[in-house]
């Protein structure tokens, strides 16, 4: 009985979040139009770079790979941010009438996961037109995971800074630092880079594209990052929803 009620609540939360997202057709258009634009632009602009030290493949391929990760990560990241910010008042009211905050969180996360699957699939399809991908299932799995990872980052920022300007500022800076340093475009051996969300997924994705073996450390690193971030985001979301975040 309790399980059925929880499932029903989750379904209600998920369907309302998806409906809210689809209410603006521009959102759907973005999901479809942005991946080709970003991936092709990245690859094209990177082709004017020389082979810099630290680059693991040709600049154009590296650009297309980095662009694919960019799309797969940051679109769900922005969706996660606005899922939390725009639904804050509704979530507060639902929480007051007894809707468990954990279920609300799960509904938001499932919406982000659905967007991650769709974005990942489109991004991978575009990448295959630019370069050979050795393992499509591994590449798709990594992209979907990266989407969920950044969706969680967006949700975390939205829970702590539940205002559009502040939340967007932080997300934009975090995403651009991460993309520039984890993508391998900038050569660095700083230990700090290993703490960035895209560091391990980037290694996994490159292995999936070029067909090399995935390092166990990279798989564990990605899994641990997603797991820890999910727990932290759940904790912060359930604590701060209704409290107003940082003002």
């Amino acid at each position: 009985m309790a399980v059925a009620r929880r499932a029903r609540r989750l379904e209600v939360g998920l369907s309302s979040a998806v409906r809210e997202f689809l209410r603006e057709p521009v959102n759907l258009a973005l999901l479809v139009a942005l991946p080709p634009l970003v991936i092709v632009s990245y690859g094209s602009i990177m082709s004017s770079f020389p082979e810099l030290p630290g680059m693991s493949s040709s600049p154009e391929t590296l650009g297309a790979v980095a662009g694919t990760l960019f799309v797969a990560a940051f679109l769900p990241g922005v969706i996660g941010l606005f899922q939390v910010i725009s639904a804050r008042r509704a979530d507060e009211r639902l929480s007051l009438v007894g809707f468990p905050r954990g279920t609300l969180f799960a509904a938001r996360l499932l919406t982000v996961a659905a967007a991650s699957l769709l974005t990942g699939a489109i991004a991978l399809a575009v990448l295959t037109t630019r370069t050979d991908v050795a393992s499509l299932p591994a590449a798709f799995g990594t992209l979907a995971l990266v989407g969920v990872l950044y969706g969680l980052v967006g949700m975390l920022i939205g829970a702590v800074l539940p205002r559009e300007l502040e939340g967007s500022l932080v997300l934009v800076f975090v995403a651009d630092i991460d993309e520039a340093l984890a993508s391998g475009i900038v050569e660095t051996d700083a230990a700090f880079v290993k703490l960035l969300p895209l560091h391990y997924p980037h290694e996994l994705f490159e292995a999936a594209v070029d067909g090399s073996a995935m390092a166990t450390g990279d798989v564990l690193g990605t899994g641990a990052y997603v797991g820890v971030l999910a727990l932290v985001t759940l904790g912060v979301y359930t604590t701060l929803t209704g409290e107003g975040g940082l003002q």
Binding site: E24, V26, N27, L30, L34, V38, F70, F74, L75, V78, I79, L81, F82, E164, S168, L171, V172, A175, D176
Partner: peptide
């Protein structure tokens, strides 16, 4: 654009 597209454009 809407805010989602706007933020994405300014990120990219």
């Amino acid at each position: 654009f809407n805010r989602l597209a706007g933020v994405y454009v300014l990120m990219f």
